[in-house]
Write a protein that binds this DNA or RNA. Structure first.
Lengths: 148, 148
DNA sequence: TCTATTTAAGACAAAAAGGTCTTTTATTCT
DNA sequence: AGAATAAAAGACCTTTTTGTCTTAAATAGA
């Protein structure tokens, strides 16, 4: 449903929120290894998140990527938005240009329930909620090395 | 959400169910013009639907594509399945391989509710239901020429 | 200041999806 | 039988997405 870039971004932000801080930056090599993502491509995704102020970075020795306390209050929807925009949540399920509540397509109502519900969930779900779920054992993200 | 091929397929099947029969076949040129789709590509999509017995075709003069009465009982999910499979309805929202009810990802529950709801809607929605909605003015599909 | 290290940036390559074109095959009609 | 017509099949091209590689810029520490 979401692009690879978005999947990488979502999981990397959670990873950084859990494992990094301004004092404990993590290099792209480590992140890519831990998450099992292609290093260079993930680098681009993270650079993009930096430009959007969702995560941060610094160069040079002891440099790397990191999250700050405010990152915990970012919603999953914000991360999706930063990567591929929110057109998914606006487009008709059948791809019709002219489709709205006035002139609904044949699956308009059902699709809206799905799409809007997901939108709400993702906008309410903050990074800190995800961390809480992971720590309390309600949710899981299985990785190569079980780092998260 | 769905691929272009699937969108083309969904709309073409509805079009054929409404406008064609074994005696009234419609050529690819006409279909592509009416729906505003690229002719050759739509041809491929329709050929694929023919192989899956969702629509039918015959060659030569008076040939063309057509739906049969049974086509009315095909669900939108069947059409999606014939085109891109149902992996969308099985995959984790975060793209995790290991994600199920036992080891749910952080958005597992919310995502499941909406995805399964959509699945149910699409599997219950038959081509004939779509035609009924269109004819009674409950739903709309706007096309180039307003053919449907 | 110099070197090592790490992100930033952008060119480049590969794969997948979308789209086009040509040739073949089947069918109808004369 | 022969000509015309339409789908079938597959080669080919284009665009987008994903992924790689090289060079530049910044920074820490000796």
């Amino acid at each position: 449903m979401f692009s690879k870039s978005t999947e990488y971004a979502l999981r990397a932000v959670v990873y950084l929120a859990k494992n990094s801080s301004e004092e404990e930056r993590i290099g792209i090599k480590t992140i890519a290894r831990d998450l099992g993502f292609p290093e260079s491509y993930l680098g681009k995704v993270l650079q993009h998140l930096v430009r959007k102020n969702i995560i941060f970075s610094s160069k040079g020795p002891t440099g790397g990527f990191y999250a700050i306390p405010e990152t915990l209050n970012i919603s999953l929807l914000d991360i999706i938005d930063a990567n591929e925009g929110l057109s998914f949540f606006k487009r008709c399920g059948l791809g019709l240009v002219e489709c709205d509540d006035e002139k609904p397509c044949p699956i308009h109502d059902e699709y809206h329930v799905f799409r809007d519900g997901l939108y709400k969930s993702l906008s309410e779900k903050k990074v800190k909620d995800v961390l809480e779920d992971l720590e309390s054992g309600i949710a899981f993200i299985s990785f190569n090395e079980g780092v998260i």
